[in-house]
Design a protein around this nucleic acid. Structure first.
Length: 688
DNA sequence: AATATCCGTATTTTT
DNA sequence: TACGGATATT
């Protein structure tokens, strides 16, 4: 590396400093199909960023580069790096997730394939709701026959579309208990599809589906693809069949495609992602070259050794073996805890110890399989005044009151959106599903009439009883203010009016209306950052707040806080110290995922992903006892075992730390004593 | 047909 | 814990 840097006197290519030979080869590889097989911590992000920078420096306009990433966060980070290399302009690179890019392209080119550019987007929950609406129409509500519920229907639908497999095959393979109902399901899906089209809405899957059509329909395909010279895809191991097809179609019209990924880190098969994409890339794409990155710069060698040992037990073969030149003495620790409370305490102790030793809280992460696994720990962290930010599993958009508010905005944006009307109308007292349906047909929502349902609403004489009648009057007023106004209001202003309209309704409907209304104020803050209502609605569905920090806004910039994250959301991240909690069988692998061998293998990779996030220190915790009833006073509990992915014969890569002493455990149980001291101390502190 | 009440219960992971 | 589902009530 040093020699290359010395030879390189052109200051514009100074960025090459620090790239090893393979990385440099990948970054500056000619404009040919390229696959970069990048093991964990091998500098994938720098390499990809440098490849983008390389294209820009060799004359490609930034806006002619398409960078597809797994999340908006990843795109931002990468473009930040590109910018540091090439200076300004990097922000003009087309970047984002497949879905976000599809949405942008569809607004530009959709008309050519029959998509109105002002469509609104259905998220997963909306998809389920619309399917449920149709399910009821098709008469599947009766209880005598069990029929897949809305969530199941949505899962079947998405898998069918994303895997590009026939429905019957998908049902037989993944939902065998629904095999008898395939015809009925197909009929629901047909209606669903027609309905979406009539309402000018696209669901998540449509974004990919229509992009794929767009990419295959000449002449517009050429027009669309000719925007780009180079297409780069990050995390290629987590793309699905549909995404691969889109990429291959783009390939026909662009100068180069580059994919980066690691089959050992594939963790999204539940979303129909398939490692086949990356494994077969070289066979499917003519003249494709491969560069493999195996030197891990992130972790110390004992940590790499342990991760290697875990993934080596995989039934599948991964052709790389990572190595690290970073020496380190400490092996990862396997820490057995008495129970969950003990685990929380030990984690907090360890976090504070690391901080005392100089590691910032934000350089420490706690990772877990499922979002709720951190619940008890969060309580303990708050009790000890340790600030934290949680990534992943944020159900903000799924909260009923948030959906209510967004549904109103979406009606303004797209007055034919059935799901939103159905939801909004039921906000009125005494209006349930049946009355909502009646009102919707009076308004001409579906089948669509020539006159906008919003206009129809203003002259609607509804046969409702009193409380609902004045509520409806208030709603008409809101519509006049917002949707019928001459010039569109800023999204935040509109949100604020919607909130005032909702206040009395929420106070009647929800127990804790105050905190819910506070959430809506947060939403106003988000809306203020968007240029328009339409942009706001798209942004929030395609890039929902991924962490508690994203929601609270950016005021905590220079404050220090611990990172909590689901393993899925930790993808791409790295921290000095990583602690994995609930590493017990039943958690990793999750009980829900022990069905077949393939899903168990994915759980193994999940643990591997978690382990490879650590730079210097890794601790794996698992509680011996799980109480059946977390709040119960009884002692009903079951015993857990360490995850099967760390069997006896690879334990030599770890330091095993035996259960803590009895005293420590009682301390954990006897909270009262401890918190008493803490409380007294806190009081005294105020006096000093 | 809508709403109140009570019930267990169950939750992976995310665009 | 909140939520969805089933039952009872208006």
């Amino acid at each position: 590396m040093a020699t290359e840097a010395a030879l390189d006197t052109d200051p514009r290519t100074a960025w090459r400093l620090g790239l090893n030979q393979q990385q440099l080869a990948a970054a500056t590889h000619e404009a040919q199909p390229l696959m970069i097989l990048a093991g964990a911590g091998t500098g994938k992000t720098s390499t990809l960023s440098c490849r983008v920078a390389h294209f820009i420096e060799t004359g490609t306009a930034p806006q002619r580069i398409l960078l597809l990433t797994f999340s908006r966060r990843a795109a931002r980070e990468m473009l930040g790096r590109v910018e540091r290399v090439v200076g300004g302009g990097a922000q003009r690179v087309w970047s984002g997730t497949f879905h976000a890019v599809a949405s942008r392209l569809m607004r530009l080119h959709g008309r050519a394939i029959g998509v109105q550019p002002d469509f609104t987007i259905l998220d997963q929950a909306d998809m389920a709701d619309l399917l449920d609406f149709i399910r009821a129409e098709h008469g599947h509500e009766q209880r005598d026959r069990r029929f897949p519920r809305k969530g199941t229907l949505e899962t079947i639908y998405s898998r069918t579309v994303n895997a590009q497999q026939p429905l019957a095959q998908v049902v037989e393979r993944y939902f065998p208990w629904c095999t008898d109902e395939v015809a009925a399901i197909a009929s629901i899906f047909t209606t669903y599809t027609n309905r979406k089209r009539a309402q000018n809405v696209l669901d998540y899957d449509d974004l990919l589906l229509y992009w794929n059509v767009l990419a295959g329909a000449e002449p517009v395909a050429r027009q669309m693809a000719e925007r780009f010279d180079h297409v780069l895809v990050d995390e290629y191991q987590d793309t699905n069949a549909l995404q691969a097809e889109i990429l291959l179609r783009l390939h026909r019209h662009v100068a180069s495609i580059t994919v980066v990924g690691d089959d050992a880190q594939a963790i999204y098969s539940f979303r129909a992602a398939t490692v086949d994409n990356i494994l077969s890339f070289a066979n499917v794409v003519a003249h494709a070259n491969t560069v493999t990155l195996e030197q891990n710069y992130r972790s110390t060698s004992p940590l790499v050794a342990a991760s290697n040992a875990v993934i080596a037990l995989s039934l599948q073969r991964h052709e790389k073996t990572l190595w690290s030149a970073r020496s380190g003495v400490s092996r990862p620790a396997l820490i057995t805890c008495h129970d969950e409370a003990d685990q929380s305490n030990l984690v907090c102790d360890s976090v504070l110890r690391s901080r005392e030793e100089g590691t910032l809280l934000r350089e420490q992460a706690i990772l877990f399989r499922a979002s709720h696994h951190s619940a008890l720990l969060e309580v303990e962290l708050s009790r000890r005044n340790i600030p934290f930010v949680k990534y992943g599993g944020l159900r903000f958009l799924e909260a009923a009151h948030v959906k209510d508010v967004l549904a109103i905005l979406r009606i303004f944006e797209n007055p034919f959106d059935e799901v939103c009307w159905f939801r909004v109308l039921q906000l009125f007292e005494g209006v349930g599903p049946a009355a909502a349906r009646r009102l919707m047909s009076a308004l001409g929502v579906q089948p669509a009439t020539a006159v906008s349902p919003l206009v129809a609403l203003l002259s609607l004489e509804a046969d409702l009883a009193e409380p609902a009648l004045s509520e409806l009057a208030a709603f008409k007023e809101l519509v006049t203010d917002c949707a019928a106004a001459g010039a569109p209001l800023p999204a935040a202003v509109e949100m604020e009016r919607v909130r005032r309209f909702c206040k009395p309704l929420f106070e009647r409907k929800y127990r804790s209306a105050d905190s819910r209304l506070a959430d809506i104020e947060q939403l106003e803050g988000l809306a203020a950052q968007s240029p328009s209502r339409s942009a706001f609605l798209s942004d929030i569905t395609l890039d929902p707040p991924g962490s508690t920090a994203d929601l609270a806004g950016p005021p905590l910039v220079d404050e220090d806080y611990l990172i909590l994250s689901t393993i899925h959301s930790a993808k791409g991240g790295e921290w000095d110290v990583v602690r994995i909690i609930h590493a017990a069988d039943g958690m990793i692998p999750s009980d829900m995922a022990t069905g077949d061998a393939a899903t168990v293998e994915e759980e193994r990779r999940l643990l591997y992903v978690a382990m490879t996030r650590a730079r210097d220190r890794m601790e794996i915790y698992f509680p011996l006892r799980y109480y059946r009833r977390p709040r119960g006073r009884d002692d009903a509990h079951g015993y857990a075992q360490l995850t099967r992915f760390v069997p006896e014969d690879i334990r030599r890569h770890f330091d095993s730390i035996a259960p803590t002493s009895r005293a420590a455990s009682e301390d954990a149980d006897g909270r009262g004593v401890r918190s008493g001291h803490v409380a007294v101390d806190a009081e005294l502190q105020k006096l000093w």
